[in-house]
Amino acid sequence: MNQGERTMQQNEMKLEFDSRSCNEGFARVAVAAFMTQLNPTLEEVADVKTAVSEAVTNAIIHGYEGRVKKVEIFCRIEQETLFVEVRDEGKGIPDVELAMQPMYTTKAECDRAGMGFAFMEAFMDALEVESTPGRGTCVRMRKHIRHDTEQFPGYLDTETAKNMTER
C-alpha cells in the first residue's frame, strides 16, 4: 500500500486538556467532529459522545479527584473503525474488574450511578481498561461505523448491495 492510499484510510488526532468538568463537553464534541469523516449516523455519534463523556468524567472525578492535571485523548480512524483512547495520570484503579461491575461506585455520596463503564461497553464495540495504582488509567475503546448501508440507491440488487457492505 502506498503512502497516498494509507492517508486515505488512516487518520489520527491527539488532544490534551485540563481535568476540569467544563472540558467534558469540549472533549466529546471534539471526538464527534473528528469521526464525522466516517459519515456516521446520528445514533453512532451519540454513542461515541456518551462513551467519551464517561471516560473523561471518570478521569476527572476518580483519577484526579478534583485536582487540575491533564487528560489526554488519542483517536485513530482505520478504514471504517474508530479507536479512542482516554488517558490520565491519576491515582489509578486497584481492581479494574470490580470497578467495571455495573452499579459499583466508590463515590455513591456524590450521586455517581456506577454505570460509566457499563455505558462505555454498551455504546462501543469493545472496551479495554488498563490501570496502575499511583500511575494512572488508560481506557481504550473501538467502534465500527457501518455507514451508508441503508442509503443504497433503489436499483441495486441484493447481491451488489451485499458486496458493497462487505467491502
Partner: peptide
C-alpha cells in the same frame, strides 16, 4: 439532546 451516566446519577 445529550445525557450520560452522570445525569442518571443525579
Amino acid at each position: 439532546v445529550f445525557m450520560d451516566s452522570s445525569g442518571i446519577g443525579m
